[in-house]
Design a protein around this nucleic acid. Structure first.
Lengths: 218, 218, 218, 218
DNA sequence: GATGAATGAGTGTTCATTCAT
DNA sequence: TATGAATGAACACTCATTCAT
C-alpha cells in the first residue's frame, strides 16, 4: 500500500508535467517551450522535472506517445467493424483528417520541432501498409510497389492535414484526398468517389477533450 | 561615384552574410546557427549584421530566396523548350527531385527550422498551378479541383523529396511519384508511365556549385 | 533486545553508506560525488543519509577514519616486533609507501577534495613523533627540533607518495626517501642506506581487499 | 589608434576579471567561487566573462600565471647577484617562504582547488634542478639522484609553506627547512646551518601589494 | 528509522541585441 | 557604415536538503 501510494503519487506528478507540456504546445505562440515554463504550469518545482525526464525532449515525446496511443485506440475501435480494405482505408484517412483538424497547433509543433515528428503515425504507417497489402491480395487494389505507395499515401495525408490546419485548404480536401488515394490504389474513379464521400460510421459516443483521450487523471 | 561605391560596398557585405549563412547551413551539424557564427564566417563585425537584417530569420530567408531564384532560372531554361503540359510537368518534377538530391542538408534545414519552409516552392506552386490549368484547358488533364490538385501534387513532391533525402526511398521513387502525379491528372496508366520514365532532356551544360546558381559575387 | 536489533540495524546502515562512499571514491572518474550517488550505491533511501550524517563531508571523513584505523592496525602489527627506533621508522615509512601505491585514487581524492586531507596521517604523526623522540632519547637520532623534524618528515612522505601515485617518481623513490629521512635524523649515510634498502619484514599473511582492512561488515 | 584603444579596453576588462578572481580567492571562505561572483565583483556583465575565458578554470589559471610570473621576476632579481650554488638555493628557498607567508589563502586555494597546483612552481622546479646540478658539478653538493632529490626538495618546501600558512609551524621553520635541504645536498651540518641562518640580501625596494606584482592596471 | 518525491537556489554557459567609437 | 565589447535574460540541468508518510 505504501508502495502503491508512492507509485500513484509519482505517476500523478508525471501526468501533471505531460499535461502541462501538452497545454503549452497548444497555447504557446513560440515553438521553444522551456522546462521552467512546463514546471511552472504544472505548479511543480524546477527540479521535479528531472525526477521524471532526463531531457526536455523526453516530455514532448511522452505527449506524442499519449497522443498516438489514444488516437490508435479510437481509430481501431472504428476499424474493427469493417471488412472491405478500401472502406477501411477511406474511413481511416477521414478519421485522421477529422481529429487532425482539432489539433492545428499540435500538428505544426510536431512538424517543425526537433521531435521525430515524421514518425507520428509510424504505427499507423505499418497499419496502412497492411491495409494496402490486404487490398492487393484481395484483388481490390492494384499497385506496382506497395512500400512506395504506402509512403506516398502517408505523405499525401500529412500534407493535406497540415494545409488544412493552416487554412490553406477547404474541408472538402479531406474527401478529395481520400478519393485520390483510392484511385492511386487502382480503384475506378466512381468507386473511389463514392467511398470517399460516404459518411463516417458513427463513432462510439465519447467525450473528446482536445486531443482525443489525453485527459489527465480522472 | 562616391554613392556608387557605397552602394556596392553595402551590397557586398550583405552578400558576404548571406553566403556565410548558406555555408553554415550546409556544414553545420546542429540546427541552431548563431548570428555570431554567421558574422565570424563572413569576416565581418558582429554589429554589421544589424545593418542588413533585423533578425536572424531574415538572413536565412534571404538564402532561401537566392535558392529559389536560381532554381527557377535553371528549371525555366529547360521548360521553355517544351510544349506538352504533361511533359512539362514530368520534366519539372524530375528536375526538382534531381536537384533536391544534392541538397539533403538544405532540405532538412528548411523542413525543421522555424523558417517558412512550406513556401520553398511557392513561386513554383503558382507555376505548377498554371501547368495544370493549361493541361486541363488543352484537354490533356482531367481534374475536379485544380487548386486542390496542385496542392496535393506539391505535397507529394515534397514528401518524396524528404524521404529520398533520408534514404527511406529508392531512386526509382522519383519516376514513380511523377507517374502517380500524371495519373492523378487523368493520364492513362501507360502514358503516365512512359512519360515518367522518359529520360531528362539534356540540361544546358553548366557547372553547378553546391546549390544551383548560389555563387556569391560575380 | 529490541534495542539491540535497532542498534545493529542503525550501525549496519551507516556501514552501508560509508562503504558506498568509499567505493565511489575509488571508481569515480570525477571528484564530485553526490549524496544521491552514495545512497543509490548503498541501496538506501535518499533521506536515510541524514539519519547518520549532517553533511556530505562527514561521510567522507568517516571513510577516512576507517582507512586510518585499518592502516594503523596493520602497521602496528609489524611494528610491535621491532625494537630499534631507526628500523621502526624505516619499516613504517616503507610500509606506508607500499600501501599507498595501491591507492592512487584515494590519495588524489584526499589531496584535492575539500577534506582535511592533511590529517590523513595525523595519528601516525603522533606516532612518528614518538618514534623520533625515542630515537633521540636512545642516542640514535640527533635532531634540533623534534616537532619540526617530524612535520618535515611527514611532508616528505606525503610528497613522495603523491608523486609516486602520479607516476612522476620511480619505485626506488621509496627507499630513497626513507634514506634521506634517516639521514635527516642524524644517521650516517651508510647506515641510513642499509636500513632503507633492507627488505620489509614479512607481513602477517592477510588477504588485502583494496584499501587495507576496509572490509565492511564481518 | 582605434585598434589600440579597443585592445586596451579589452585588456582592461580582462584585468578586471582576473583581479576580481584573485580578490575572491583571498577573501572567500569557501573554495567554490562562481563565475557570477567574479563578474559581479568586477562590475561587469555575466556574459562578458566569456569574451575572455572559455571556462571557469581559465580565469584562475590566469591568476596563477600572473602570480608565478611576478614571483619569478622578483626572485630572479635577487638571484642574479649570487654565485655560490648553495647560497643561491638557500636564498631562493627563504625568499619563497617569505612571500608565501603573505599568501596563506592563495596557497590553500592552489593546493585544494582542481587547478594544476602542483605546477605552481614548475618553472622554479626546473630552476631548482639546475641549481642542484650546478652545485654537483662544482663539487659543492653530493647527491645520488639529482632528479629525485629535486623532487623531494620541492616537496619539503611546499610542505613547510603550507604548514606555515596554517600556523602549524613557527617562523623558524623556514630556516630549519633550508638547513635540512642543504644537508640533504651534502653540505656539512655547520655550513648548512650558517647558510640557512644568514640574513636575506636586501630586496630591491618595492611596495608589495598582496601577492607580489599583481597590481592591476596602473 | 526508513523513505524518496519534492524542492529551488544555484551552476556554467549561450546569444540576440545594443551602442559608443 | 563598420565595429566588437558589453550585456543580461534565458537556458538546461544539478543537488543538498526537507518532510510527509
Amino acid at each position: 500500500m505504501e508502495l502503491t501510494r508512492h507509485h500513484n503519487q509519482k505517476t500523478e506528478t508525471r501526468k501533471l508535467l505531460v499535461f502541462a507540456a501538452r497545454e503549452l504546445v497548444y497555447e504557446s505562440e513560440h515553438e521553444n517551450i522551456s522546462i521552467q515554463e512546463v514546471t511552472q504550469r504544472a505548479r511543480v518545482g524546477t527540479g521535479t522535472f528531472y525526477n521524471y525526464f532526463q531531457t526536455k525532449q523526453q516530455v514532448f515525446e511522452a505527449v506524442l506517445d499519449e497522443f498516438r496511443q489514444s488516437f490508435s485506440l479510437e481509430v481501431n475501435a472504428i476499424r474493427e467493424n469493417l471488412k472491405d480494405p478500401a472502406t477501411i482505408i477511406a474511413v481511416t484517412l477521414k478519421y485522421y483528417f477529422l481529429q487532425a483538424q482539432d489539433n492545428e497547433k499540435w500538428n505544426s509543433f510536431i512538424t517543425y520541432s526537433g521531435l521525430p515528428g515524421q514518425h507520428i503515425l509510424c504505427q499507423e504507417e505499418e497499419q496502412c501498409l497492411n491495409d494496402i497489402q490486404r487490398g492487393v491480395q484481395a484483388g481490390r487494389f492494384k499497385v506496382d510497389d506497395v512500400y512506395f505507395t504506402q509512403s506516398l499515401v502517408t505523405g499525401m495525408v500529412k500534407h493535406t492535414t497540415l494545409e488544412l490546419s493552416k487554412g490553406h485548404l477547404e474541408r472538402s480536401a479531406m474527401d478529395d484526398t481520400a478519393q485520390y488515394v483510392l484511385r492511386m490504389l487502382g480503384l475506378p474513379y466512381l468507386v473511389a468517389r463514392a467511398l470517399a464521400q460516404s459518411p463516417m460510421p458513427p463513432v462510439r459516443a465519447q467525450k473528446k477533450v482536445h486531443p482525443p483521450g489525453l485527459q489527465i487523471a480522472n
